[in-house]
Every structure is written in structure tokens, then in C-alpha cells.
Design a protein around this nucleic acid. Structure first.
Lengths: 197, 197
DNA sequence: TTCAATATATTAATATTGTTAATTATTTAG
DNA sequence: CTAAATAATTAACAATATTAATATATTGAA
């Protein structure tokens, strides 16, 4: 048996890479076993030597995309003033990442795993993602008495639901219809959430 | 040509009825042309004499389901105290409707129409649904000086995004994991949105 | 009423999907 | 260098949506 050899990991990587390219470019509906395999340079059946099914492969992309998203956000919030400002910028950058990559939004929030229980750790990662991204700044806010602990928790919750809600309606339902409107609405929602006390 | 005869509408109704049954029961992934046609008592190809494709048929169910949802909510808010209380009860009933019918949630928020522009009126209906359901009470609140107009608008916006956000995470990502937690979280979110001034 | 014209429904066929089985090619051990 | 193990490919299957070809009703006029 080969079992977790470097070659196996390399092969998996080829398929994951191919899947990621399709997701980033054409989106979830274009992802297919034959499509992935062709892009990876292998036969479609070969894929099944490395993944139990196509759904497992698709979900393996989530980790990579989270890193990518994190880098995207970091690059856009490096110069942000610490505290609430940085939190706001992070949330906006987060939304913009998915607006630019709707296929990745589909993967994160819409696609259902075949076996939801086996994928729960991944689903946890998604759920806690925005919390993780803003955690440092929340700690900063509390330490500097900008917000109290329970206020911060409240706000984190609101943001946790606001983001997927707005993105779902905008990306999947064209509501609001223009990016400009979406952006304005998001801005106003965040300001409101963060500034009330 | 038959063009919009009563018979044509009746035939359409059979297929819509069948689709609705499947959506309500097994959910979107079980909906298929052959499945629908069998339940309607016709051949699968017959369906194409009445709908351009299966996606159009699926979207035709939305109107019916909105009525159904409305009745569901009315039955559960009839005795609610007017004003903010009734708004809160409406929002909770709205969420519960979709928790009980996750297939209808998929249809309303997740399924993408083939031609999004042709279906925009339907998407508008979905987007404005919760606003429509609560409109009367908001008017009441403003008239009785319980809330100011701009406050009310703000709150409507928040609810408009909160609901799909929470439902998406709960129904599609099992977050939070239990209905009890979901319910508690929703309650707390609504209280917070409605009571701050 | 009967026969053509029309309208409607059905079966057959096509092109995709995911997945598994059977087969071929390649690598590895002795 | 051959035999065994491993890996990759082609073939095949079942299910999907949709279209084309065919069969069956229905209708309107003689």
C-alpha cells in the first residue's frame, strides 16, 4: 500500500488545485469529475483512487480558500487603525472577497457535504471564520475599554449572521441589484452594529 | 393553439402540485422531471409542453408557498399583542416555517433560476417578503410613536438580512447544532434589534 | 358521422452527470 | 528480469435534463 506517501499527497494536490481553479473561475455548477480530471491531466476514474467522492474533494478546497481569504483581508487591513475601524475594514474585505469569488461563497455556505457529520469540523471553521479574523481586534477593544465584553459578544453575533445573509441575497438573489447599493448597505449596517452601545 | 385555456392552467397545476409535494417532503435534490411527472400522472416529456424547463416549474411554486407561509404565520400571530410584539412573533413564525420546511428555504434562497433577469419579479417578492409580512405593524408602531420612521427602516433592514443569514447557517451548516440553540439565538437577536433606540 | 387537421402525450434518443468494474500499464521486490 | 503489487485508463451503468420522432386524442368541416 502507498498510504499517505508524498506521492499520494502530490496527486491529491493536483486534483485540489484543478478544483480550486474551476471554483474560482466558473463556479460550483461547472465543477465535475471529468472537468477536474481533465484539468489535472488525469482520467476521471483516477480521482477515485484519492478521494472517496467528488464532494469530499470539493470540501478539501475550503482550507486553502480560507488561507487565501485571510491573505486577501490582511493585505487590505494592514494600515487600518486598530480597534473598531480594523474590525469594520475586515468585515468589508471579507464581503468583497466573496463578491469577487462567488464560487467560493457557494462552496463555503451553499454546497452541502454528503455526510454532514463527518464534515462538521470544516463547517465549524466556516462558522467561526469571521470571529477568528476579528478576534485580535475585539481583544484590543476590550482591553482598551472601547467595548465591554458582553457588547463585543453581541456585536460578533450580529456580524456572524449579517455577512452570510447579505452575501446570500446579493450573490444569489441580486438583492440589492448593484454592487454600489450592496456596498452602501453593508457599510451602514456595520456602522450601526459597531457604534451603538 | 390552446393558449392559456383553463385546461392548460389545470395541467400546469398538476405539475406544480406534484413539485410542491416533493419540495415540501423530500427537498430540492429529489425534485426531478421524471419524479414530478410520475407524481402528476404524466410522462416526463409532457411537462415540456407546459414549462420551458424544470427550473421554471420549480420557481412557479414560490407564489403558492408564500401564501402558505403567510397563513402559517397568521395562525401563529393572531393573538399577538399589536406592535413590536407582533413583529417579533411574526419573525419567529417565519423562521419556524422554514425550519419545518427546509426544502422551501432552499427554493426561496438557494436555488438559482436559469434566467435570473426573467425571474427578478419573483426574487423581489422573496426579498420583500418579511417586510410585507410586518408592514402593517410597523405602520402601527410609527402611528403610535413607538418607533420613529428611520428607526423602523433600520430595524426592517436588519431583520431582512438576519433571517436568511441565521436560517442559512442553521439549515445548511448545522450552526448552531440544536434547534433549541437556534431558537434562543434568534430570540435574543430580535429582542436586541427591536429594543434598542 | 366520418375523415382530415390539429393538438397533445408518449416513447426513443442524446448528451450530461457520478460512480464502479474490468482491463491495461507501470512500478516495485526478489 | 520476471512476478507481484500498484496505479491509471477505458468501458459500463444508472440517473439526470432536454429534444426529436412517433403515436394518440381531439376537433371541425363535409
Amino acid at each position: 500500500m502507498r498510504k499517505n506517501s508524498v506521492q499520494e499527497e502530490r496527486m491529491k494536490g493536483y486534483f485540489i488545485q484543478a478544483t480550486k481553479e474551476i471554483l474560482r473561475g466558473e463556479g460550483l455548477k461547472v465543477v465535475s469529475v471529468r472537468n477536474i480530471a481533465e484539468r489535472a491531466g488525469y482520467s476521471y476514474a483516477t480521482l477515485y483512487n484519492y478521494f472517496s467522492d467528488v464532494n469530499e474533494l470539493i470540501f478539501e478546497c475550503i482550507n486553502d480558500f480560507q488561507e487565501e481569504c485571510e491573505e486577501f483581508i490582511e493585505a487590505r487591513t494592514k494600515k487600518s487603525e486598530r480597534g473598531l475601524n480594523k474590525i469594520k475594514d475586515t468585515v468589508i474585505a471579507y464581503a468583497n472577497f466573496f463578491v469577487q469569488h462567488p464560487g467560493i461563497f457557494e462552496l463555503f455556505y451553499l454546497e452541502k457535504p454528503n455526510d454532514i457529520s463527518r464534515k462538521q469540523p470544516t463547517l465549524d471553521l466556516i462558522y467561526n471564520f469571521i470571529d477568528r479574523l476579528t478576534m485580535e481586534e475585539w481583544v484590543y477593544c476590550i482591553k482598551n475599554n472601547i467595548k465591554k465584553m458582553d457588547e463585543a459578544e453581541r456585536m460578533k453575533s450580529e456580524i456572524r449572521f449579517l455577512l452570510p445573509g447579505m452575501l446570500l441575497l446579493y450573490l444569489n438573489r441580486r438583492k440589492p441589484e448593484s454592487y454600489k447599493q450592496f456596498s452602501t448597505e453593508l457599510n451602514s449596517q456595520i456602522d450601526y452594529i459597531l457604534h451603538k452601545e
